[in-house]
């Protein structure tokens, strides 16, 4: 692997994977703490028809149109889920199951129709992502990392994800206390005048944007995995809100880095001329971290609890 290969192939693809992972890991905290992990699953599927319509209207992968389409689809999904839950008097999970699967199926059919009109999008890309298509052809050497002309050619997915990371990080910092109260104690939040509903829909909106920013590169399933696994692992390791957030971000970023390395560059270094699906590998690494956290978590881990029980029995 030459330096140029690294700059043109692995750097943009790896960075994109890591940024998608960190973005989802940040947002996932609030889902896991609110017991709404499945909302992430639902939204990441339900945005699909909006993405396709955005694609077709823009005639290309124009980020703004696609994001508008996805946001509209997410809003529609949120409204429909609530309507079905109330009118049908079924649990929220069942109502989600109806809405997101129908919207996803609609998206798949739309894709097949759009593909007939030569729109560059297919169902496989939605499920697994196309990390190998994230290329940065501009660099000619290390100096290009500081060259504005080359940097301007950074792949669109990478730039979008970086911007989303920044925006989500800022929003979370800005509303840190409110998010904490609405996540841990929604009743208290509304008692002291924090609009919990507004925060819920704000979160849904951010999820939709994150799902769109990530899906092209890493696919919708990695989004589901990275929304759930890092935050769940952090939940097994700590009770403190600040640490929960920091751990989840670290686990998400680390899984992204490790998963990407295991899937491609490591195999190359070992002299093999093929690679594995990086998005899938990142999900596997995040799942493995969760298993480790469940087993070895200091207070809530399975082994720690067993030891505590044995000690209590001995006394």
């Amino acid at each position: 692997m030459t330096l140029l290969d690294f700059l043109q192939l692995d750097l943009p693809a790896g960075l994109t994977a890591v940024l998608a992972s960190s973005l989802c890991a940040m947002l996932g905290n609030f889902l896991v703490l609110r017991r709404q992990a499945l909302v992430g699953d639902a939204i990441s599927h339900a945005v699909l028809p909006g993405i396709v319509v955005g694609f077709v209207l823009a005639g290309s992968r124009d980020t703004v149109t696609v994001m508008l389409g996805a946001t509209a689809a997410a809003a529609l999904a949120a409204v429909l889920i609530e309507a079905v839950r109330r009118l049908g008097r079924v649990e929220a999970a069942a109502s989600m199951g109806v809405v997101f699967t129908v919207m996803f199926a609609g998206g798949v059919v739309l894709i097949e129709q759009a593909a007939a009109h030569a729109v560059d999008l297919d169902a496989d890309c939605v499920l697994y992502g196309q990390l190998e298509d994230v290329l940065w052809l501009a660099p000619t050497g290390l100096a290009s990392l500081l060259d504005p002309a080359a940097l301007a050619e950074l792949p669109r997915e990478l730039v979008t994800l970086a911007a989303m990371n920044l925006a989500v990080g800022l929003l979370i910092a800005l509303f840190w206390k409110e998010l904490r109260i609405t996540s841990f104690d929604p009743a208290l939040a509304s008692a002291i005048g924090i609009p919990a509903g507004l925060f819920h829909y704000g979160l849904v909106l951010l999820l939709a944007l994150a799902a769109v920013a990530s899906f092209e590169a890493v696919g919708s399933i990695l989004v589901v995995a990275m929304l759930a696994c890092p935050a769940a692992a952090a939940r097994m390791l700590t009770d403190r809100y600040g640490r929960q957030f920091a751990l989840s971000l670290a686990i998400g970023t680390g899984s992204g880095l490790l998963g990407y390395t295991l899937a491609g560059p490591l195999l190359l270094l070992l002299g093999m001329d093929w690679s594995l699906n990086a998005a899938g590998m990142i999900a596997v690494v995040a799942g493995a971290v969760l298993v480790l956290a469940v087993l070895f978590g200091p207070h809530h881990g399975v082994l720690a609890k067993r030891r505590a029980r044995r000690m209590a029995g001995a006394v």
Partner: peptide, 27 residues
Amino acid sequence: HTRLTEDTAIAAVLGSSFGLGVVLLSV
């Protein structure tokens, strides 16, 4: 058997097992 809720468990198992499937597909 852990403090995780069912929705988190479902999302985590769904995401990482599908990821494993995709890796195996590339094998």
